[in-house]
């Protein structure tokens, strides 16, 4: 386990140095929040003030895009380059690579999420009890974990050239129909209802507006999570002889 953690630490260090990764998971959501949240201060969506909704949305975008597009691309590239093969020749336990990727992804999600939530509190004027901050952060974190599992599935299954469009497609569908770019209503909201991204936002906004969160929200997220994990396990097993 110690060597797996050492690998995870190295992964975190690499991600921290990667400008592209930092831009999409930290830079973009922060800038968008700074620009857009104040201009829509008087609107209400999903029963909360716009800056509160947008805080949830931007924190989710940063966490999910980092977890999905960043990881999928890197895993696929590292598989192609033979780094995964190289690790299999060491005394590292089998699957240490995947476990380290997931740990690193979960660690790197924390600062970007915390940063946007802090902006919401001190710049967007969102006031909440302490436990709700943790509940919101935790929900986004679990969502990011699910997308990390999907990234493993895509990264193991496809070559880097193919990964890029696939990951971008999933990212846009999940973020737009999940209501992360703008709040959904009517028909689009009905589609969004089945997506984990939409339910993460919903749990967040319900917590902020003091409504009770329906159990289906949690069930939807966990169902996607389980589905992505199954896909990841199948992909890793199926490619055991070709990594």
């Amino acid at each position: 386990m110690n060597s797996t953690l050492a690998l995870a630490r190295a992964e975190v260090r690499r991600l921290g140095r990667n400008k592209r990764y930092s831009f999409f998971s930290v830079g973009l959501p922060v800038v968008l929040y700074l620009v857009i949240a104040p201009s829509a201060r008087h609107y209400h969506v999903y029963g909360v003030a716009y800056p509160a909704y947008y805080m949830i949305a931007m924190a989710s975008i940063g966490a999910f895009s980092g977890a999905l597009t960043g990881n999928a691309q890197r895993i696929s590239q590292e598989r192609k380059d033979g780094w995964i093969r190289q690790l299999r020749l060491t005394a590292l336990p089998a699957n240490a690579y995947v476990i380290a990727k997931i740990i690193a992804s979960m660690v790197i999600t924390v600062p970007s999420t915390v940063l946007v939530l802090l902006l919401g509190r001190f710049y967007g004027g969102v006031h909440l009890e302490l436990w709700k901050w943790f509940a919101i952060g935790g929900t986004i974190w679990i969502g990011a974990l699910a997308f990390t599992a999907l990234a493993v599935a895509i990264g193991y299954r496809f070559m880097p050239d193919t990964v890029q469009p696939i990951a971008m497609f999933v990212y846009f569908v999940m973020s737009i129909l999940g209501g992360l770019w703008f709040a959904l209503s009517g028909f689009l909201a009905k589609i969004g209802d089945v997506l984990p991204t939409y339910q993460v936002t919903r749990i967040g906004t319900d917590l902020i507006s003091n409504q009770s969160v329906p159990a289906t929200a949690y069930i939807t997220i966990l169902a996607w999570f389980a589905g992505f994990v199954v896909l990841a396990v199948i992909a890793v097993r199926a490619t055991a002889e070709t990594v």
Partner: peptide
């Protein structure tokens, strides 16, 4: 066919 970890 063994690769190396980049960025380190």
């Amino acid at each position: 066919s063994g690769g190396l970890m980049p960025e380190v």
